[in-house]
Each structure stands twice: as C-alpha cells, then as structure tokens.
Design a protein around this nucleic acid. Structure first.
Lengths: 210, 210
DNA sequence: GACTTTTAGTGAACGCGTTTACTAAATTAT
DNA sequence: ATAATTTAGTAAACGCGTTCACTAAAAGTC
C-alpha cells in the first residue's frame, strides 16, 4: 500500500510549518544573544531565555536539544568573525609572511576574547540525540578554515613550509595554536612567560619545524 | 597591650585541631575518590559525597570552598602519576631521543585518560576566596615538571634543541602538547587525521623548530 | 551559675539544566 | 457530532552546586 505523497492524509494536529518553527527559533536565539551580550555566558540561563522569549523553559527543549545547541548559533557568529579576520589577513599580507601572520591573527582573536573562548571550548559539544549533528559538522567551520589551508599550500609552494600533506600540517598548526590559547586563557596563573613571546615562539617553531 | 602568645586566651568555642580538620578532609576526599572511581566525574556530586562521608552537603563547604577545590586532591594524584611516568621515561631513554619520548609519553598519558583530562582541564580553577590558592601553586606541579625542564636543557646541550631560554622552550612544548590533547580529546569529530600522526608530527615539528 | 563570644554543623532555600506527566488544540475518521 | 490521533506548550518535579539563617556546643568572663 503506497500512500499519496502529494497529500499524505495524517490524523492528528499538524506540526507547525517550518517557517513558524524557524521564527520561534530565531526569537529564542535573539533572546539568548541579548542575554549573552548583556550578562556574559554565566548570565544566560534557560529560564531567563524563556522569560525573555515569553515561553516556558520546557518549550525551549521542543526547538533545541539543550542549552549548548541553542548557544551554538551565537558561537557560529563568533567563528564567522574569526574567519573574516583570517580572510582579511590573507588579503593584506605578503605571501612569504602570510601563514605566520594568519596564525598570529588567529591567536590574537581568541586571546582578546577569553570569555568567548571559554564559552566555546571549555564545554564539550556532545550531541545527545543521534539526529543532532556536531557544531563542526553543521556550522561551516571546516569550509571557513579553507582560507588557512590555502595559506599552508601557498607556504609550501614558497618553501616556507616543508613538503607533505597540507591537511596534516594544518592540523598540527591548529593544535599548536589551540594549546597556546588554552593555556594562556584558562591557566593564566602558570608561569608561561610573556604571552607575546609564547605566541610568537610557538608559531615560529611550528612553521620552522613543519 | 600585648597578649601572652604562649596562651592566647580567646573567648568562644575553639576551632577543631588541625589534625581533626585534616582527618575530616581526608574522610571527605576518600568518599569523593570512591565516587569518582565508581561513577566518573558526572557521578560525583556534593550531595553524594556528603551522604557517603555522613555529613550534610553544607558541611563540605566548611572544609573546601567548592566542588572543584575538593576534587583537586584527586587530580593531584593523577598528576603525580603523570610525573612518575615522565621520570621513568627520562631514566630509560637515550639522551638524544629523551625529549621526544617524554613528550609522546605526556601525550599518551592524557589521550589514554580522556575523562581525567576533561575533568581537570575543561573546568577552570578560579579561586573564589582570596586566601585559597590556585591548583598549580599548591600541588607541586611546577616542581614535578622540572624533569621536563631538565630534558629540555639536556636536549639543548646535545644540539637537539636550539639555544635560548629553556623555560621559554618548555612553555612552547607544553602549549603544543596541550593543544594536541585538547583537540583530539574534546573535538574528536573534527577531521584532525590519524591521532598517532598528529601527535608525532606536532612533537617533531616543535622540537625541530625550537 | 549567668553571660558573651566563637565555632561546628544543619535544614531550608535559591537558581540552575533538564525531564516528565499532563492539558489544550488541531486535524482526520467514523 | 463524536471519537481518535497527533502536536504544542506548560506546570511541576528532579538532582545539581551553593548560600544563608539558624541551633548547638564549647570556651572565657563576670
């Protein structure tokens, strides 16, 4: 028995249209954005978002699987800023210095926004329901980092970087930078030394050693 | 008016002796350790610890300023294991390979214990009262990492590492390794590539570039 | 003994993220 | 109309970390 797909007669109350659902999602995300901007990460709570969006806390869970998945949309905007900064850097530097400049730009971005860094990286993105995807899968981050990959390829062509898989070199670079940002931001009490020094020394060592 | 220091007559109920307080602390830490071992980080709650230590949740806050400061004692033991592993590595490798071997040992340690890594690094250590010190200040971690610093100095003497401030080079190494551990453990869904590759490539690049 | 001061420890509460049981609404089938 | 079915949305609850107001206990002072 094959039902007619043009009018799948279903019993029961119909679900809200995709547009309606998207509107609700956006209203909630806007509420969250306001709170996030006004009171920082710890000022955002599901109850406050619900109050600002004029619904019950439980209603949020009809549209988002949890607080983190809700806030991911805000963090997506932050990543977009980062990518834009990298793109600008790629467009305004000499090829020979480009990769190093982009790495320093990347680090300066997070070091100048430690609260955003903490909010994004210090809480894990674990999709609890199997139909929800990871942030990195759904946010276009990987596509955005193409600009960094291109800088790696260009650096290889110029002999700044050794030969080998550019993806591998990009991963190593991103790990190294993640470590600098992480240590300087979340363990500032450890005697790492001058942040400017550790930043430059790490980037230079990675580029020289790759 | 100078009071007699040998018998400073103080009104009011005397505080518990240091030994008594230490005993209570240990009883509580043992309860926490049991829960941590049996149910993992998320299985530990102040209420459960209190129930197992046979006191009220609020009583815990008389001896520890918070959950994190309570659990730091358990994490101190984990760090001791790490330091012991590094020491063993330093004692059993050829000087020329020692630094690289120790870095890989460091990384393997955390990569084989992702839950411990998350518990320790993904929650920030912010002393909320000014008389409480940071974990890194009070746990002997910095002293423990002397073994890594010595390996850096030895590597410099052997020409494996360039000249320059060994503390600076140690910081860069630790940042790089932190980034690898962080990315592989907390963002496993990103296409970093083979963990073994990224581990070795990062350590080699850092040592070659320093 | 009565009073004051200091500490130990508790019970109740706050706000949190999240889940559950439920009611109301909107549709088709009879 | 009535019943059945499906969805939207909520009120109440759970366990969490933490705080606060309070009581009980133990000491010195009068």
């Amino acid at each position: 028995m094959i039902s007619n797909p043009s009018k799948p007669t279903r019993r029961g109350r119909p679900p809200r249209s995709q547009k309606q659902a998207a509107d609700s999602r956006e209203r909630i995300i806007n509420a969250a954005r306001t709170l996030f901007a006004e009171e920082g990460y710890h000022g955002v709570s599901m109850r406050k978002i619900a109050a600002l969006a004029d619904c019950s806390p439980a209603a949020l869970y009809k549209l988002f699987p949890g607080k983190r998945q809700l806030l991911l949309h805000i963090w997506g905007e932050i990543f977009a800023e980062l990518i834009a900064g990298l793109q600008h850097c790629a467009d305004s530097t000499e090829p020979a210095d480009r990769l190093e400049a982009m790495c320093l730009t990347y680090l300066d971005f997070w070091l100048s926004r430690p609260d955003d860094y903490r909010a994004i990286f210090l809480i894990e993105d674990q999709p609890q329901s199997e139909d929800e995807s990871y942030f990195v899968d759904s946010s276009g981050i990987q596509e955005g980092f193409q600009v960094l990959r291109q800088a790696v390829v260009d650096a290889q062509a110029l002999g700044v970087l050794g030969d080998g898989d550019p993806d591998e070199k990009q991963s190593v670079l991103m790990c190294g930078m993640q470590g600098v940002a992480m240590n300087l931001i979340t363990i500032p009490e450890y005697p790492w030394g001058d942040p400017e020094m550790i930043k430059r020394a790490t980037v230079r060592a990675l580029i020289a050693g790759l």
